[in-house]
Amino acid sequence: MKFKVVDARGRSCPEPVLMTKNAIKDNSNVQVLVDSNVAKENVTRFAINSGYKVEVKEEKDSYILTLTK
């Protein structure tokens, strides 16, 4: 499966969500890297509202959010 990778680590609100929004415009599957709980929650909420399934994996100090339709 092909994924767009969005590196939103270190970005402040609402950039992670905005970057995700731009990445899913063409309905592609996306992996979003974030490094804060608030970004994880915001991106997850946005993705679910946009009809995506979200899988969260924690790694070191980051989260990998896998967004699939």
Partner: peptide
């Protein structure tokens, strides 16, 4: 511009 890379496979490295 914001660079977006495309990757094969599910796993990505940090």
């Amino acid at each position: 511009s914001t660079e977006v890379e495309i990757k094969e496979g599910v796993e990505i490295e940090i």
